[in-house]
């Protein structure tokens, strides 16, 4: 069952870009594009293609609703940013298990088997369990959440997910009082995921959250986007979405969720500890050692200033009260 509801986040009016600024920025962008292409030539450029990608056409035959704005209840996030197109969201993916080439993940992941699929909930819980993917979809009410996704590489998208709060699953498992962290693991299957044959990284992909982060109402397990089931390139059949952290924290194709009392070491922490920390909160003031995090390229729109905690500071800043975010990056 799909309950359509807003995330319940109030927009502080201070965060809404005044219309004249917004318009002048658009004007400026158009100007820059025109210079690049040559104003005269740009007038002759054909209109952008409106046909949906083959993946959408194929699933349309199964009777699913088309993946357009009509499939979701609202077309913008609470800051007024338009959701990205289904085509962009499903053809521009960081999923190193398949390839490091963002534009080729969709093709290489097309045959990935997402059914049958089991998620094991284990570790310091009173009620460990094994959930079939359909159980997760049935037992927990699926909600629509329109979230900004900010990649550590300084680009971002706005994505209409469906999923349910991770807290609901954790509550069902009843964490023990000693549990402090949640550790997540992606499927390990090099036959299906050719990237896992590379010894550059310590597979399987592992991520972690502090228990209070995992229980936060903004943290969800997503099973779909744009009103349909997740496609493999987006982390099918179930993935984490933690919107105030860099995208790599939102681990895909999860097979195991373990409660523990030791801080998990994520794949990226192991690969480059001085560049990727445990928290990985979006923070425009703490740069990556090799690039600035002050701004980002919002796909389909253009350059935006990066917001503290990706614009979710009012909801999550309290989780980090008193912490030195430069050290705990």
């Amino acid at each position: 069952m799909l309950i359509k509801k807003r995330t319940g986040i109030e927009i502080p009016s201070s965060q809404i870009t005044p219309e004249h600024l917004y318009l002048s920025r658009r004007h400026f962008m158009k100007g820059a594009a025109a210079i690049a292409a040559g104003a005269l030539l740009a007038a002759c450029r054909p209109d952008p293609p409106t046909t949906l990608p083959p993946t959408v056409a194929a699933s349309d035959e199964t009777g699913a609703a088309p993946a357009t704005a009509a499939a979701i209840s609202v077309a913008t996030d609470e800051l007024g940013r338009a959701v990205n197109s289904f085509e962009s969201i499903t053809n521009y993916n960081n999923y190193y298990e398949f390839t490091v080439d963002k534009q080729r993940v969709a093709e290489l992941a097309a045959d990935f088997q997402t059914s049958p699929w089991r998620v094991v909930v284990t570790g310091m819980v009173d009620k460990p369990g094994i959930y079939e993917i359909d159980d997760l979809r049935r037992k927990f009410d699926q909600e629509e959440r329109i979230y900004r996704l900010r990649c550590v590489e300084a680009w971002s998208m706005v994505i209409p997910w469906q999923g349910f709060p991770l807290a609901q699953l954790l509550q069902a498992a009843q964490p023990q009082s000693a549990a402090k962290y949640v550790r997540f693991q992606t499927l390990y299957d090099p036959e299906q995921m050719p990237g896992q044959k590379s010894s550059r990284y310590e597979w399987p992909y592992t991520e972690g959250l502090r228990l209070d982060e995992a229980m936060h109402p903004l943290t969800i397990l997503a099973t779909g986007l744009y009103g349909r089931d997740l496609l493999p390139q987006n982390g099918a059949p179930v993935r984490l979405v933690v919107p105030w952290k860099y995208g790599f924290k939102s681990i895909k194709s999860i097979v195991q969720i373990e409660l523990t009392d030791v801080m998990p070491t994520s794949l990226w922490m192991a690969a480059a500890p001085h560049e990727y920390g445990f928290y990985a909160n979006v923070n425009p003031e703490v740069d990556h050692p090799r690039w600035s995090q002050a701004s980002e390229r919002l796909i389909g729109v253009g350059r935006q200033e990066t917001l503290m905690f990706n614009g979710y500071a009012d909801q999550v800043a309290a989780l980090y009260a008193g912490m030195d975010l430069r050290r705990n990056f």
Binding site: A37, R45, P46, P48, P49, N84, E87, S88, N91, Y92, K102, Q103, W155, R297, I299, G300
Partner: peptide, 9 residues
Amino acid sequence: FWYYRLGAD
């Protein structure tokens, strides 16, 4: 670029 084949970004 002309035929919109530069992908999402």
